[in-house]
Nucleic acid binder design. Structure first.
Lengths: 228, 228
DNA sequence: TTCATAGTTCGATCGTAACCGAAACATCGC
DNA sequence: GCGATGTTTCGGTTACGATCGAACTATGAA
Protein backbone atom coordinates (compact mmCIF):
# COMPACT_ATOMS: atom_id res chain seq x y z
CA UNK A 1 0.00 0.00 0.00
CA UNK A 2 2.93 2.31 0.18
CA UNK A 3 2.77 4.51 -2.83
CA UNK A 4 3.57 8.04 -3.69
CA UNK A 5 5.72 10.73 -2.17
CA UNK A 6 6.74 10.74 1.45
CA UNK A 7 4.85 13.55 3.08
CA UNK A 8 5.54 12.34 6.59
CA UNK A 9 9.14 13.45 6.36
CA UNK A 10 8.37 17.07 5.58
CA UNK A 11 5.40 17.01 7.90
CA UNK A 12 7.67 16.00 10.74
CA UNK A 13 10.17 18.67 9.75
CA UNK A 14 7.50 21.34 9.98
CA UNK A 15 5.87 19.67 12.95
CA UNK A 16 8.31 20.82 15.59
CA UNK A 17 7.29 24.18 17.09
CA UNK A 18 10.81 25.57 17.11
CA UNK A 19 11.35 24.65 13.47
CA UNK A 20 7.93 25.92 12.47
CA UNK A 21 8.70 29.28 14.06
CA UNK A 22 11.98 29.48 12.21
CA UNK A 23 10.35 28.67 8.89
CA UNK A 24 7.61 31.19 9.52
CA UNK A 25 10.19 33.84 10.31
CA UNK A 26 12.07 33.04 7.12
CA UNK A 27 8.86 33.53 5.16
CA UNK A 28 9.77 37.16 5.69
CA UNK A 29 12.24 36.66 2.85
CA UNK A 30 15.15 38.07 4.77
CA UNK A 31 18.14 35.87 5.42
CA UNK A 32 18.63 35.27 9.12
CA UNK A 33 21.58 34.01 11.13
CA UNK A 34 21.52 30.96 13.34
CA UNK A 35 21.51 33.17 16.42
CA UNK A 36 18.52 35.15 15.24
CA UNK A 37 16.67 31.97 14.39
CA UNK A 38 17.42 30.54 17.80
CA UNK A 39 15.73 33.66 19.16
CA UNK A 40 12.53 33.25 17.18
CA UNK A 41 12.46 29.55 18.01
CA UNK A 42 12.87 30.23 21.70
CA UNK A 43 15.72 27.77 22.05
CA UNK A 44 19.44 27.83 22.67
CA UNK A 45 21.97 28.12 19.93
CA UNK A 46 23.05 24.51 20.12
CA UNK A 47 19.52 23.23 19.69
CA UNK A 48 18.88 25.65 16.87
CA UNK A 49 21.97 24.44 15.10
CA UNK A 50 20.71 20.91 15.15
CA UNK A 51 17.28 21.96 13.88
CA UNK A 52 18.79 23.99 11.09
CA UNK A 53 20.92 21.08 10.00
CA UNK A 54 17.83 18.92 9.77
CA UNK A 55 15.89 21.49 7.82
CA UNK A 56 18.76 21.88 5.42
CA UNK A 57 19.14 18.14 4.97
CA UNK A 58 15.42 17.98 4.25
CA UNK A 59 15.82 20.53 1.49
CA UNK A 60 13.74 23.24 3.10
CA UNK A 61 16.55 25.64 3.84
CA UNK A 62 19.59 26.94 2.07
CA UNK A 63 22.53 28.47 3.85
CA UNK A 64 25.16 30.90 2.76
CA UNK A 65 28.16 31.44 4.90
CA UNK A 66 29.45 34.92 4.99
CA UNK A 67 32.32 35.70 7.24
CA UNK A 68 31.63 34.22 10.61
CA UNK A 69 27.90 34.35 10.11
CA UNK A 70 25.75 31.75 8.53
CA UNK A 71 22.72 33.12 6.76
CA UNK A 72 19.74 30.88 6.31
CA UNK A 73 16.93 31.35 3.81
CA UNK A 74 14.12 29.20 2.54
CA UNK A 75 15.48 26.92 -0.16
CA UNK A 76 13.24 28.35 -2.87
CA UNK A 77 9.85 29.79 -3.61
CA UNK A 78 8.19 26.39 -3.50
CA UNK A 79 9.02 26.12 0.18
CA UNK A 80 7.61 29.57 0.79
CA UNK A 81 4.41 28.61 -0.98
CA UNK A 82 4.14 25.45 1.06
CA UNK A 83 4.55 27.29 4.35
CA UNK A 84 2.10 30.01 3.37
CA UNK A 85 -0.42 27.45 2.22
CA UNK A 86 -0.15 25.65 5.52
CA UNK A 87 -0.61 28.95 7.32
CA UNK A 88 -3.70 29.63 5.26
CA UNK A 89 -5.03 26.21 6.08
CA UNK A 90 -4.29 26.53 9.78
CA UNK A 91 -5.81 29.99 9.92
CA UNK A 92 -8.96 28.65 8.28
CA UNK A 93 -9.34 26.14 11.08
CA UNK A 94 -8.78 28.62 13.82
CA UNK A 95 -5.44 27.14 14.78
CA UNK A 96 -4.18 30.50 15.80
CA UNK A 97 -1.74 31.23 18.54
CA UNK A 98 -3.00 34.76 18.85
CA UNK A 99 -6.57 35.63 18.17
CA UNK A 100 -6.61 37.79 15.07
CA UNK A 101 -7.44 40.89 17.03
CA UNK A 102 -6.03 44.32 16.37
CA UNK A 103 -2.62 43.35 17.60
CA UNK A 104 0.39 44.26 15.60
CA UNK A 105 -1.49 46.74 13.45
CA UNK A 106 1.57 47.52 11.36
CA UNK A 107 1.85 43.85 10.45
CA UNK A 108 -1.73 43.72 9.31
CA UNK A 109 -1.44 46.89 7.30
CA UNK A 110 1.58 45.93 5.22
CA UNK A 111 4.08 43.17 5.53
CA UNK A 112 6.39 41.15 3.40
CA UNK A 113 5.43 37.66 2.31
CA UNK A 114 8.61 36.01 1.07
CA UNK A 115 9.36 38.73 -1.46
CA UNK A 116 6.12 40.54 -2.17
CA UNK A 117 3.63 42.79 -0.41
CA UNK A 118 0.94 41.25 1.78
CA UNK A 119 -1.52 42.44 4.39
CA UNK A 120 -4.09 45.18 3.93
CA UNK A 121 -2.02 47.05 1.37
CA UNK A 122 -1.21 43.90 -0.58
CA UNK A 123 -4.88 43.04 -0.88
CA UNK A 124 -5.72 46.62 -1.82
CA UNK A 125 -3.09 46.68 -4.53
CA UNK A 126 -4.37 43.54 -6.21
CA UNK A 127 -8.01 44.64 -5.90
CA UNK A 128 -7.12 47.93 -7.50
CA UNK A 129 -5.15 46.35 -10.33
CA UNK A 130 -8.08 44.08 -11.08
CA UNK A 131 -10.62 46.92 -10.89
CA UNK A 132 -8.61 49.03 -13.30
CA UNK A 133 -8.34 46.17 -15.76
CA UNK A 134 -4.58 45.79 -15.41
CA UNK A 135 -4.87 42.25 -14.18
CA UNK A 136 -7.56 39.79 -15.12
CA UNK A 137 -8.73 37.22 -12.58
CA UNK A 138 -9.70 34.03 -14.30
CA UNK A 139 -10.63 31.05 -12.22
CA UNK A 140 -7.93 30.64 -9.63
CA UNK A 141 -5.32 32.46 -11.63
CA UNK A 142 -4.24 35.91 -12.59
CA UNK A 143 -3.04 37.29 -15.90
CA UNK A 144 -1.50 40.63 -16.82
CA UNK A 145 -3.47 42.43 -19.53
CA UNK A 146 -2.02 44.68 -22.23
CA UNK A 147 -3.39 47.68 -20.41
CA UNK A 148 -1.67 46.50 -17.27
CA UNK A 149 1.60 46.05 -19.07
CA UNK A 150 1.45 49.63 -20.30
CA UNK A 151 0.39 51.06 -16.97
CA UNK A 152 3.19 49.28 -15.15
CA UNK A 153 5.78 50.51 -17.61
CA UNK A 154 4.54 53.99 -16.70
CA UNK A 155 5.64 53.46 -13.10
CA UNK A 156 8.96 51.96 -14.04
CA UNK A 157 8.39 48.21 -14.02
CA UNK A 158 10.21 46.44 -16.83
CA UNK A 159 7.62 43.79 -17.62
CA UNK A 160 9.57 42.42 -20.56
CA UNK A 161 12.47 41.38 -18.39
CA UNK A 162 10.14 39.69 -15.91
CA UNK A 163 8.41 37.75 -18.67
CA UNK A 164 11.63 36.20 -19.80
CA UNK A 165 12.30 34.62 -16.41
CA UNK A 166 10.80 31.20 -15.88
CA UNK A 167 9.16 32.19 -12.66
CA UNK A 168 5.45 32.89 -13.13
CA UNK A 169 4.68 36.55 -13.64
CA UNK A 170 1.47 36.66 -11.64
CA UNK A 171 0.45 34.38 -8.91
CA UNK A 172 -2.20 34.86 -6.32
CA UNK A 173 -1.23 34.24 -2.74
CA UNK A 174 -3.83 33.82 -0.02
CA UNK A 175 -2.71 35.23 3.23
CA UNK A 176 -3.70 34.30 6.70
CA UNK A 177 -4.43 37.71 8.17
CA UNK A 178 -6.74 38.98 5.45
CA UNK A 179 -7.98 35.66 4.11
CA UNK A 180 -7.95 37.35 0.73
CA UNK A 181 -5.66 37.10 -2.26
CA UNK A 182 -2.76 39.37 -2.94
CA UNK A 183 -0.25 39.48 -5.76
CA UNK A 184 2.78 37.19 -5.70
CA UNK A 185 5.05 36.03 -8.52
CA UNK A 186 7.82 38.00 -10.14
CA UNK A 187 5.51 40.93 -10.74
CA UNK A 188 4.58 41.07 -7.07
CA UNK A 189 8.23 41.07 -6.20
CA UNK A 190 9.06 43.77 -8.73
CA UNK A 191 6.33 46.04 -7.44
CA UNK A 192 7.47 45.78 -3.84
CA UNK A 193 11.07 46.35 -4.89
CA UNK A 194 10.09 49.49 -6.71
CA UNK A 195 8.32 50.87 -3.64
CA UNK A 196 11.42 50.25 -1.57
CA UNK A 197 13.70 51.72 -4.22
CA UNK A 198 11.60 54.84 -4.47
CA UNK A 199 11.81 55.27 -0.73
CA UNK A 200 8.06 54.99 -0.33
CA UNK A 201 8.50 52.25 2.21
CA UNK A 202 11.16 50.40 4.13
CA UNK A 203 11.52 47.07 5.81
CA UNK A 204 11.83 46.95 9.56
CA UNK A 205 14.71 45.34 11.30
CA UNK A 206 13.21 42.45 13.18
CA UNK A 207 9.73 41.98 11.85
CA UNK A 208 7.91 41.18 8.66
CA UNK A 209 6.16 44.52 8.63
CA UNK A 210 6.70 47.16 5.96
CA UNK A 211 6.59 50.79 7.02
CA UNK A 212 5.36 53.36 4.53
CA UNK A 213 6.58 56.95 4.76
CA UNK A 214 3.88 59.64 4.77
CA UNK A 215 4.80 60.52 1.20
CA UNK A 216 4.96 56.87 0.15
CA UNK A 217 1.62 56.26 1.72
CA UNK A 218 0.12 59.10 -0.26
CA UNK A 219 1.63 57.87 -3.53
CA UNK A 220 0.59 54.29 -2.92
CA UNK A 221 -3.02 55.21 -2.17
CA UNK A 222 -3.14 57.46 -5.21
CA UNK A 223 -1.70 54.76 -7.46
CA UNK A 224 -3.97 52.02 -6.21
CA UNK A 225 -7.36 53.54 -5.51
CA UNK A 226 -10.35 51.51 -4.47
CA UNK A 227 -13.93 52.64 -4.68
CA UNK A 228 -16.02 52.64 -1.53
CA UNK B 1 7.84 36.89 18.03
CA UNK B 2 4.93 34.48 18.01
CA UNK B 3 2.60 35.58 15.32
CA UNK B 4 0.32 33.94 12.85
CA UNK B 5 -1.25 30.54 12.53
CA UNK B 6 0.13 27.47 14.19
CA UNK B 7 1.51 25.32 11.43
CA UNK B 8 3.49 23.12 13.79
CA UNK B 9 0.34 21.44 15.00
CA UNK B 10 -0.80 20.27 11.59
CA UNK B 11 2.75 19.56 10.56
CA UNK B 12 3.11 17.22 13.51
CA UNK B 13 -0.20 15.62 12.68
CA UNK B 14 0.97 14.83 9.16
CA UNK B 15 4.49 14.12 10.34
CA UNK B 16 3.86 10.65 11.68
CA UNK B 17 4.32 7.95 9.01
CA UNK B 18 1.27 5.96 10.02
CA UNK B 19 -0.95 9.04 9.96
CA UNK B 20 0.54 10.24 6.70
CA UNK B 21 -0.26 6.90 5.09
CA UNK B 22 -3.82 7.06 6.32
CA UNK B 23 -4.28 10.57 5.00
CA UNK B 24 -2.77 9.61 1.66
CA UNK B 25 -5.12 6.66 1.42
CA UNK B 26 -8.10 8.89 2.17
CA UNK B 27 -7.04 11.17 -0.66
CA UNK B 28 -8.65 8.44 -2.71
CA UNK B 29 -11.95 10.03 -1.71
CA UNK B 30 -13.45 6.80 -0.49
CA UNK B 31 -14.52 6.53 3.14
CA UNK B 32 -12.49 3.89 4.97
CA UNK B 33 -13.04 2.09 8.23
CA UNK B 34 -10.66 2.18 11.17
CA UNK B 35 -9.58 -1.39 10.43
CA UNK B 36 -8.77 -0.60 6.81
CA UNK B 37 -6.83 2.45 7.87
CA UNK B 38 -4.90 0.45 10.41
CA UNK B 39 -3.92 -1.76 7.49
CA UNK B 40 -2.61 1.02 5.29
CA UNK B 41 -0.80 2.51 8.25
CA UNK B 42 0.83 -0.80 9.08
CA UNK B 43 -0.22 -0.65 12.72
CA UNK B 44 -2.63 -2.39 15.06
CA UNK B 45 -6.17 -1.31 15.55
CA UNK B 46 -5.55 0.18 18.97
CA UNK B 47 -2.79 2.40 17.68
CA UNK B 48 -4.85 3.40 14.67
CA UNK B 49 -7.72 4.36 16.91
CA UNK B 50 -5.51 6.74 18.82
CA UNK B 51 -4.14 8.26 15.62
CA UNK B 52 -7.59 8.70 14.16
CA UNK B 53 -8.79 10.44 17.29
CA UNK B 54 -5.90 12.88 17.02
CA UNK B 55 -6.54 13.55 13.35
CA UNK B 56 -10.17 14.20 14.04
CA UNK B 57 -9.42 16.49 16.95
CA UNK B 58 -7.07 18.37 14.65
CA UNK B 59 -9.86 18.89 12.15
CA UNK B 60 -8.32 16.84 9.38
CA UNK B 61 -10.78 13.98 9.43
CA UNK B 62 -14.50 13.54 9.72
CA UNK B 63 -16.14 10.34 10.83
CA UNK B 64 -19.54 8.89 10.24
CA UNK B 65 -20.66 5.95 12.22
CA UNK B 66 -22.71 3.44 10.39
CA UNK B 67 -23.73 0.28 12.14
CA UNK B 68 -20.73 -1.14 13.83
CA UNK B 69 -18.35 0.50 11.40
CA UNK B 70 -16.84 3.88 11.64
CA UNK B 71 -16.13 5.46 8.29
CA UNK B 72 -13.46 8.10 8.10
CA UNK B 73 -13.01 10.66 5.34
CA UNK B 74 -10.95 13.79 4.95
CA UNK B 75 -12.77 16.64 6.65
CA UNK B 76 -13.18 18.64 3.46
CA UNK B 77 -11.62 19.55 0.15
CA UNK B 78 -9.18 21.94 1.78
CA UNK B 79 -7.55 19.03 3.56
CA UNK B 80 -7.33 17.12 0.30
CA UNK B 81 -5.68 20.09 -1.36
CA UNK B 82 -3.20 20.42 1.47
CA UNK B 83 -2.21 16.76 1.29
CA UNK B 84 -1.92 16.81 -2.49
CA UNK B 85 0.14 19.97 -2.38
CA UNK B 86 2.49 18.40 0.12
CA UNK B 87 2.75 15.35 -2.11
CA UNK B 88 3.57 17.57 -5.05
CA UNK B 89 6.22 19.32 -3.02
CA UNK B 90 7.73 16.11 -1.73
CA UNK B 91 7.73 14.58 -5.20
CA UNK B 92 9.54 17.63 -6.52
CA UNK B 93 12.32 17.07 -4.00
CA UNK B 94 12.65 13.40 -4.76
CA UNK B 95 11.30 12.37 -1.37
CA UNK B 96 9.78 9.26 -2.87
CA UNK B 97 9.32 5.97 -1.17
CA UNK B 98 9.19 4.19 -4.47
CA UNK B 99 11.18 5.35 -7.43
CA UNK B 100 8.71 6.49 -10.02
CA UNK B 101 9.40 3.53 -12.26
CA UNK B 102 6.82 1.64 -14.23
CA UNK B 103 5.36 0.08 -11.13
CA UNK B 104 1.67 0.08 -10.61
CA UNK B 105 0.95 0.93 -14.24
CA UNK B 106 -2.79 1.05 -13.66
CA UNK B 107 -2.27 3.70 -11.00
CA UNK B 108 -0.23 5.82 -13.35
CA UNK B 109 -2.72 5.46 -16.19
CA UNK B 110 -5.82 6.56 -14.32
CA UNK B 111 -6.53 7.06 -10.67
CA UNK B 112 -8.77 9.05 -8.45
CA UNK B 113 -7.51 12.16 -6.71
CA UNK B 114 -10.02 12.94 -3.95
CA UNK B 115 -12.97 13.10 -6.36
CA UNK B 116 -11.60 13.69 -9.82
CA UNK B 117 -9.54 11.93 -12.43
CA UNK B 118 -5.74 12.02 -12.21
CA UNK B 119 -2.81 10.20 -13.77
CA UNK B 120 -2.13 9.86 -17.48
CA UNK B 121 -5.78 10.05 -18.44
CA UNK B 122 -6.43 13.02 -16.18
CA UNK B 123 -3.60 14.96 -17.79
CA UNK B 124 -4.75 13.94 -21.27
CA UNK B 125 -8.29 15.07 -20.59
CA UNK B 126 -7.23 18.53 -19.47
CA UNK B 127 -4.76 18.90 -22.34
CA UNK B 128 -7.45 17.97 -24.79
CA UNK B 129 -10.01 20.34 -23.29
CA UNK B 130 -7.50 23.15 -23.53
CA UNK B 131 -6.49 22.26 -27.09
CA UNK B 132 -10.11 22.23 -28.23
CA UNK B 133 -10.75 25.61 -26.65
CA UNK B 134 -13.18 24.33 -24.07
CA UNK B 135 -11.03 25.46 -21.20
CA UNK B 136 -8.74 28.46 -21.17
CA UNK B 137 -5.54 28.39 -19.17
CA UNK B 138 -4.75 31.79 -17.80
CA UNK B 139 -1.85 32.22 -15.49
CA UNK B 140 -2.16 29.56 -12.82
CA UNK B 141 -5.86 29.16 -13.27
CA UNK B 142 -8.41 27.61 -15.55
CA UNK B 143 -11.68 28.94 -16.88
CA UNK B 144 -14.48 27.27 -18.76
CA UNK B 145 -15.23 28.96 -22.10
CA UNK B 146 -18.64 29.27 -23.75
CA UNK B 147 -17.62 26.66 -26.27
CA UNK B 148 -16.64 24.36 -23.43
CA UNK B 149 -19.96 24.89 -21.72
CA UNK B 150 -21.81 23.85 -24.87
CA UNK B 151 -19.55 20.88 -25.56
CA UNK B 152 -19.98 19.56 -22.04
CA UNK B 153 -23.73 19.87 -22.21
CA UNK B 154 -23.48 17.62 -25.24
CA UNK B 155 -22.03 14.84 -23.13
CA UNK B 156 -24.51 15.30 -20.36
CA UNK B 157 -22.79 17.60 -17.85
CA UNK B 158 -25.14 20.13 -16.31
CA UNK B 159 -22.78 23.06 -16.05
CA UNK B 160 -25.46 25.40 -14.78
CA UNK B 161 -25.98 23.38 -11.64
CA UNK B 162 -22.25 23.24 -11.00
CA UNK B 163 -21.89 26.99 -11.37
CA UNK B 164 -24.40 27.65 -8.65
CA UNK B 165 -22.38 25.73 -6.06
CA UNK B 166 -19.81 27.77 -4.20
CA UNK B 167 -17.06 25.31 -4.94
CA UNK B 168 -14.80 26.51 -7.77
CA UNK B 169 -15.82 25.09 -11.13
CA UNK B 170 -12.32 24.58 -12.50
CA UNK B 171 -9.19 24.14 -10.54
CA UNK B 172 -5.92 22.79 -11.70
CA UNK B 173 -4.34 20.10 -9.58
CA UNK B 174 -0.71 19.18 -9.98
CA UNK B 175 -0.14 15.55 -9.41
CA UNK B 176 2.94 13.81 -8.23
CA UNK B 177 3.16 11.01 -10.78
CA UNK B 178 2.85 13.09 -13.93
CA UNK B 179 4.11 16.39 -12.56
CA UNK B 180 1.57 17.97 -14.83
CA UNK B 181 -1.77 19.61 -14.21
CA UNK B 182 -5.09 17.88 -14.41
CA UNK B 183 -8.62 19.12 -13.87
CA UNK B 184 -10.03 19.35 -10.35
CA UNK B 185 -12.94 21.38 -8.98
CA UNK B 186 -16.62 20.56 -9.33
CA UNK B 187 -16.26 20.14 -13.08
CA UNK B 188 -13.50 17.59 -12.63
CA UNK B 189 -15.67 15.72 -10.21
CA UNK B 190 -18.69 15.84 -12.52
CA UNK B 191 -16.68 14.49 -15.45
CA UNK B 192 -15.37 11.55 -13.48
CA UNK B 193 -18.84 10.83 -12.12
CA UNK B 194 -20.25 10.75 -15.61
CA UNK B 195 -17.61 8.24 -16.75
CA UNK B 196 -18.49 6.00 -13.85
CA UNK B 197 -22.24 6.41 -14.43
CA UNK B 198 -21.89 5.54 -18.07
CA UNK B 199 -20.04 2.40 -17.16
CA UNK B 200 -16.92 3.51 -19.00
CA UNK B 201 -14.83 2.97 -15.92
CA UNK B 202 -15.06 1.70 -12.40
CA UNK B 203 -13.21 2.17 -9.16
CA UNK B 204 -11.23 -0.69 -7.76
CA UNK B 205 -11.79 -2.06 -4.34
CA UNK B 206 -8.59 -1.34 -2.49
CA UNK B 207 -6.61 1.08 -4.57
CA UNK B 208 -6.86 4.54 -6.01
CA UNK B 209 -6.74 3.28 -9.55
CA UNK B 210 -9.60 3.62 -12.01
CA UNK B 211 -10.13 0.81 -14.51
CA UNK B 212 -11.55 1.64 -17.91
CA UNK B 213 -13.54 -0.97 -19.82
CA UNK B 214 -12.48 -1.59 -23.42
CA UNK B 215 -15.52 0.31 -24.65
CA UNK B 216 -15.01 3.11 -22.09
CA UNK B 217 -11.43 3.39 -23.13
CA UNK B 218 -12.44 3.79 -26.76
CA UNK B 219 -15.02 6.43 -25.93
CA UNK B 220 -12.68 8.35 -23.67
CA UNK B 221 -9.91 8.47 -26.23
CA UNK B 222 -12.35 9.55 -28.94
CA UNK B 223 -13.81 12.27 -26.73
CA UNK B 224 -10.45 13.62 -25.62
CA UNK B 225 -8.07 13.37 -28.56
CA UNK B 226 -4.53 14.73 -28.44
CA UNK B 227 -2.42 15.44 -31.44
CA UNK B 228 0.90 13.75 -31.72
C1' DT C 1 -29.56 -15.16 24.87
C1' DT C 2 -24.92 -16.05 23.07
C1' DC C 3 -21.28 -15.39 19.96
C1' DA C 4 -18.59 -12.67 16.68
C1' DT C 5 -16.97 -8.47 14.80
C1' DA C 6 -15.67 -3.42 15.18
C1' DG C 7 -13.80 -0.13 17.87
C1' DT C 8 -12.18 2.40 22.20
C1' DT C 9 -9.79 2.93 26.62
C1' DC C 10 -6.22 1.80 29.87
C1' DG C 11 -1.63 0.81 31.32
C1' DA C 12 3.00 -0.13 30.60
C1' DT C 13 7.05 -0.27 27.66
C1' DC C 14 10.24 1.59 24.72
C1' DG C 15 12.67 4.53 21.31
C1' DT C 16 13.54 8.63 19.64
C1' DA C 17 14.23 13.32 19.45
C1' DA C 18 14.44 17.74 21.75
C1' DC C 19 17.15 19.96 24.86
C1' DC C 20 21.22 22.13 27.04
C1' DG C 21 26.16 22.43 29.20
C1' DA C 22 30.67 22.13 27.85
C1' DA C 23 34.09 22.01 24.68
C1' DA C 24 35.83 22.35 19.94
C1' DC C 25 36.07 24.87 15.67
C1' DA C 26 36.05 28.93 12.63
C1' DT C 27 36.52 33.67 11.49
C1' DC C 28 37.18 38.37 12.39
C1' DG C 29 39.55 42.52 14.55
C1' DC C 30 43.52 43.86 16.78
C1' DG D 1 50.02 35.91 17.62
C1' DC D 2 45.62 37.08 20.92
C1' DG D 3 40.89 37.50 22.45
C1' DA D 4 36.04 38.01 20.97
C1' DT D 5 32.13 36.45 18.52
C1' DG D 6 29.42 33.05 15.90
C1' DT D 7 28.45 28.26 15.14
C1' DT D 8 28.96 23.21 15.36
C1' DT D 9 29.86 18.81 17.77
C1' DC D 10 29.64 15.79 21.69
C1' DG D 11 27.54 13.64 25.73
C1' DG D 12 24.07 12.86 28.75
C1' DT D 13 19.38 13.81 30.50
C1' DT D 14 14.68 14.07 29.95
C1' DA D 15 10.15 13.99 28.16
C1' DC D 16 6.92 12.87 25.01
C1' DG D 17 4.49 9.98 21.97
C1' DA D 18 4.08 5.70 19.27
C1' DT D 19 3.26 1.13 20.12
C1' DC D 20 0.75 -3.00 21.66
C1' DG D 21 -1.61 -6.44 25.10
C1' DA D 22 -5.55 -6.76 27.63
C1' DA D 23 -9.86 -5.42 29.11
C1' DC D 24 -14.07 -3.03 28.02
C1' DT D 25 -18.13 -1.21 25.04
C1' DA D 26 -21.20 -1.40 21.15
C1' DT D 27 -23.52 -3.30 17.21
C1' DG D 28 -25.13 -7.12 14.45
C1' DA D 29 -26.11 -12.08 13.55
C1' DA D 30 -27.70 -16.66 14.98
Amino acid sequence: MKEGPDIAQIGALIGDPARANMLAALTGGRALTATELAGVGGITLQTASSHLAKLEAGGLLAQRKQGRHRYFTLADEAVARLIESMMGFAAGRGHLRHRPGPKEPALRKARICYDHLAGDYGVRMLDSLIASGSIAAVGDGLALTEKGENDLKGIGIDVGALKSSRRPLCRSCLDWSERRAHLAGSLGKALLSSFLDKGWARRTAESRSILFSPEGDRQFLRLFPVEG
